[in-house]
Computed example of a mutant assay.
Amino acid sequence: MIRIVPKPTDTPGDNSTGAVIRELRREGVAFSLLDLDTIDPLASPITGDTIWVCGMKQDIHQFECLDVLSMENNVVNSPDAIATCASKVKTTALLLKSGIPSPETLFTASRPLAEEFLARHGGVVSKPVYGYDGIDVRMVSSPGDLREAPYYLQEYVENDRDYRVFVIEGRAVGAICRRSPHLTHNIHQGGIGTPVEIDPAMQEIAAGAAEAVGADYCGVDLLPLNGGYTVLEVNGTPNWHCMAAPIPSLMARYLIGKEQESRR
């Protein structure tokens, strides 16, 4: 059985869960929705299934439910991968360890270190450690712009666009270029997405980023830099706004394959 944890931010006009469900129905595959807030994973009869986390709340109960369920089921993405992608700090650490290009980053509770990093770069980008949809991503130009510790700061890479690359099992299957007049080009912050071809450099770095964080599938955000790309972050429960690639169909086939593997 394929069990689906719906994305909590789905709306009638932007329903990621529903798009994949339609493809599963088209394939005649059995599935059910799984509400993590209504179960006790310590006494759950769910075992041997494929659980797809289209999205989840960032709270302790839902994460612990998934973690326990993953002991007897195949959870996609794994709780470890979801937790890693939720933390910009751990994501950055794994990217650096794997040699994946990423903007120079500082994570500290020390204001003097934060001010020194800011002075060296002249201007940096401040991001929440656990953030999504480009919310509260800010440019910091002076010490007075720094808020309370801890500080997650990245060098500002001058740009007029970024790229979201959708990766499934190490293969980039879709990509868009996102543009906006703002610091962040996220679609939820008013960015406009346009489908683009996946070039070899994009494939290589996006696949490497997915492998570094241990994600079966993910959205990798890139900035163009020096003829190549640098990784901004990796999303473990990604949307696929504006992509020309048939992501819902690809995701449905991927889940069907995972379920078939678990039954062998």
Rank of each mutant, 00 (worst) to 15 (best):
D162Y: 06
T108K: 03
H241V: 07
I100Q: 02
R22S: 15
S126L: 05
F117K: 00
D40P: 03
E116P: 00
A81P: 03
P41G: 02
M1W: 06
R3L: 15
S32W: 01
L24P: 10
P150W: 03
E116Q: 14
D59L: 01
S70H: 06
Q260W: 14
E233Y: 01
W52G: 07
K90D: 08
A172S: 07
E169H: 11
I21N: 03
P248M: 00
D80Q: 10
Y163N: 04
G227T: 12
G55P: 01
V125W: 00
Y152V: 08
I100G: 02
T47A: 15
D59V: 03
A175G: 02
D49L: 01
E197G: 10
E204I: 05
D37G: 02
L95E: 07
G190V: 12
R179A: 07
D59Q: 08
R179D: 10
G122I: 08
R171H: 04
P200H: 06
G227K: 03
V140I: 15
V167Q: 08
T50K: 08
V137A: 00
R171L: 07
G13S: 09
L153S: 02
L69M: 13
A30D: 15
E211L: 08
V20F: 08
C218D: 02
A175M: 13
Q62S: 13
A252P: 08
R161K: 15
Q62W: 01
H182K: 14
D67A: 15
M251I: 15
A119Q: 09
E116H: 09
N226E: 15
G257W: 05
L42A: 14
D133P: 00
G122N: 07
I192K: 14
V140W: 04
P103S: 02
V29Q: 10
D80F: 12
E211W: 11
I46P: 05
S32T: 13
D14L: 14
V234K: 04
S249I: 01
I168C: 10
L66A: 05
T105R: 01
I135C: 13
M202A: 09
P101A: 08
R253A: 11
G219I: 09
K57I: 06
R263F: 08
V89M: 04
I2M: 10
A83M: 15
G123S: 14
I176D: 09
I82F: 06
D160W: 10
A114E: 11
S180L: 11
D136K: 12
R25T: 11
A201L: 15
T47K: 13
H182E: 08
T237M: 12
M1K: 12
A252I: 06
L250H: 05
L66T: 02
P181E: 14
V213S: 06
L113T: 03
D136M: 10
P246G: 04
C54Q: 13
Y229E: 11
Q154L: 01
P45G: 06
G227M: 11
P150M: 04
A19R: 07
P181S: 11
A210H: 08
P112S: 00
N239Q: 14
Y254D: 01
T91E: 03
E211H: 12
V124E: 05
E27P: 00
G13H: 12
R253I: 07
E23A: 06
W52Q: 02
